[in-house]
Design a protein around this nucleic acid. Sequence first.
DNA 1: CGCTCCGTTGACGTAAGTCAAGAGATGTGG
DNA 2: CCACATCTCTTGACTTACGTCAACGGAGCG
Lengths: 232, 232
Amino acid sequence: MAAHAGCMGCTSPTRELFACLLPEQRARLASSAVPHAYRAHESLFHEGTPALALHCVHAGAVKLFRRLYSGEEVVVGVRGAGDLVGLRGVLAGIPYATTAMTLGPATVCAIPGATLLALLRENAALAVRLLGRLALESRQAEDELVERAHCGVGQRTARFLVRWLAPADAAACAPRGEAAPALGREEMARLIGTTPESLSRTLHAFAREGLLALEARRIRVLDPVALRRRAE
Amino acid sequence: MAAHAGCMGCTSPTRELFACLLPEQRARLASSAVPHAYRAHESLFHEGTPALALHCVHAGAVKLFRRLYSGEEVVVGVRGAGDLVGLRGVLAGIPYATTAMTLGPATVCAIPGATLLALLRENAALAVRLLGRLALESRQAEDELVERAHCGVGQRTARFLVRWLAPADAAACAPRGEAAPALGREEMARLIGTTPESLSRTLHAFAREGLLALEARRIRVLDPVALRRRAE
DNA sequence: CGCTCCGTTGACGTAAGTCAAGAGATGTGG
DNA sequence: CCACATCTCTTGACTTACGTCAACGGAGCG
């Protein structure tokens, strides 16, 4: 158990989620949930493979994407500390629809699907909470769709930067304090749903307007208010 | 009960979903699930309002959309016979994120959220099935996102026509046999995520290639194979 | 007959992807 | 420490797919 102190850390932003467990159940969860420190660009699971585990992101960030026949990857979402990854597949008993890959160093707990389903059968409150999470997941996908459909690259970029660099709700979640990993242009572009070239132009346009400072690999926000307004 | 024969019809494509109910439970469902015949362009519920009921589409088609500040609507999905609408809001206890509106005449059952949640508490099997549906909903949104992100208007149009006009799985679901309602260009364009002008051009391009015949308000598929290939 | 509405078509504008070349970085071996 | 190779980023020129605007045409209807 002591060995899994880190995993109870895993349940830290997720603590509320598992707060409804009985001590015995919590122990069971702790003993089978295996926390793992990933390095950058490691994958948690692959599109199309059976959903064996639910992943709780403790620290770091994870991108979810599908690979098209053409080989290019379409990112459908990014998850950070406190988020669950792979919930849908586990709950519905269907294969993962996306590949999950860390964007930087990350700590992630893997909760075996069987364990989760067992807990879920015993504890209705947990079921309700997970349901809420699944609903959130569905909503996020929809939001993402609307955003891509309607917003231009500029707006999407601004929105991304706000979410990525701003510990907006830093007040609430302490572990989010960690600096977001510096991304390459290629990767950042994919997360936003554009190309490195277009991203570069957009970024420099923002810099010219005094919103950002571009230094080496680092992006510093100079005018958060204007940036947020740009994100609408 | 006899009055609700139509509603057990409502559970017809959905029959499998509610097959797990005990007779007593099924009776309870039947007595509170109210089937209603909608006319074209009536709304089932509105974005932002509390999710009071789960809607089962018995016949017809329903579009789900959000309205932007600008006033334009973004369609995030279309549901047909056998599909559930509004599941997410009811299960998660959050307001509807979209407005649901019939595309043509439609028969839809409204199951009060309270009734559903009560049944759900008693019947774990039902919970699991609904969960699967919610997972499906989440996946559909993701699919839609990938499609919009990657495919051009031509491909999306072809894909839409295949889904809309082809009783592809007509074998399985009999009630789907009904002709899809003829849509105006404006509406069809929105469903595809484009403009009436672009749609018109695309449609006529398809017609020139011999894939379609455009007669008055009706679109007839001349070469289903080629059309499907065009949809990838 | 003339109205309005919808669909069609053309001309044009624009955002963003593509291609290609250059400019910094970063790293490696001599 | 420099020379060289590699890689990422940036920039410019070009292309393309669509959206936008506007005019036109036909169908339905009073």
